[in-house]
């Protein structure tokens, strides 16, 4: 069933090339790009949380191009209906029958832009699709393409008319990353340089869906030793027991952490999952699922950061 995994060195080189290629378009964000790539290698969905205009869409588009995925962008709005995403039965005039008209979610890489603008019903329609990798309309299920990734973006500010994703929904994103403003020097270059969007046109796919699946298999095959497993468990246990954290990491989060750490280890050419691999992805994987009790108070430390500092590496 699972496709042939390429040798580790090849897999690593390919993953590096993907990240490098995307880095040509998104300047000065190598870590974020690598996180995004490893998120996709771990077959997970990505949530990018940042203010508008920092290149979220551009990142999603470049990834889609480089990975050779067909791309669809859905702009979420407050007046949307679930059918606007999933599609609906439409009466076809010529055949005088109702046929299923697939919605925009039927793409290999879906950019769900400003997901928090849509009402909860719409959000959950998308999240169901992410989870089940299929869409059920009128008792009929329609499989989504494979691979299937969702990159959702949301605005961190609670503006009027937004619906923040509830915790159970956030749990479905493997990672949440921020992009942030580019460093000043790079921004200068950006200001002076070409329009990045034009650069996008120069990108060429590096992999086909088959070899992308091979990369995912290679990531799943990265060795997770007992020592690394102990570390993951220690981290998870800490979040569940710490009085400073409202809700500990779910089993799904723990699984996601392992998957992401494996993908990261693959990208770094490690023989197995090293503690640094776990740490590198921990904030991205756990950040959006952990809430400190003193969140919002001045001087509050981000819980994920604190966990990493506190938990000893076994």
């Amino acid at each position: 069933m699972s496709p042939q995994a390429p040798p580790v060195a090849t897999a690593r080189a390919l993953a590096e090339r993907i990240a490098g290629e995307v880095g040509l378009v998104i300047l000065g964000k190598p870590d974020e790009i690598r996180l995004a790539v490893s998120c996709l290698l771990a077959a997970g969905h990505l949530l990018i949380e940042d203010v508008p205009g920092v290149g979220k869409t551009l990142l999603a588009r470049s990834l889609a191009t480089v990975l050779g995925l067909d791309f669809r962008r859905i702009q979420f709005t407050s007046d949307m209906l679930p059918a606007d995403i999933t599609g609906a039965q439409i009466f076809e005039r010529r055949s005088e029958r109702l046929v299923f008209q697939p919605g925009p979610v039927f793409a290999q890489l879906v950019l769900a832009d400003e997901i928090n603008r849509a009402p909860p019903k719409v959000q959950s329609a998308l999240l169901e699709a992410m989870e089940e990798r299929q869409v059920s309309i009128d008792g009929e299920s329609h499989a989504l393409p494979s691979p299937f990734f969702v990159i959702a973006t949301q605005n961190p500010l609670h503006q009027a008319g937004t619906f923040p994703l509830p915790e159970s929904q956030l749990d479905r994103f493997l990672m949440r990353i921020g992009l942030g403003y580019p460093p000043a020097a790079l921004e200068r270059k950006l200001l002076r340089g070409d329009d990045r969007r034009e650069l996008l046109a120069t990108l060429r796919p590096l992999v086909d869906p088959g070899s992308l699946a091979g990369l995912q298999t290679a990531a799943r095959a990265v060795r997770l030793g007992d020592a690394a497993l102990d570390y993951v468990q220690a981290l998870v246990r800490y979040t569940r027991e710490s009085p400073e954290i409202e809700l500990g990491l779910s089993p799904r989060a723990a699984t996601d952490l392992v998957a992401a750490a494996r993908a990261w280890a693959l990208m770094n050419g490690h023989e197995g999952v090293y503690p640094e691999d776990v740490q590198a992805v921990f904030t991205a994987v756990a950040g959006h699922r952990l809430h400190g009790r003193d969140a919002g108070l001045p001087g509050a430390v981000e819980p994920a950061r604190k966990v990493l500092d506190e938990v000893a590496i076994p």
Binding site: Y274, Q279, D309
Partner: peptide, 9 residues
């Protein structure tokens, strides 16, 4: 070395 510090770090 701090407890949460990775060997590489």
């Amino acid at each position: 070395r701090r407890p949460g510090e990775t060997p590489s770090a």
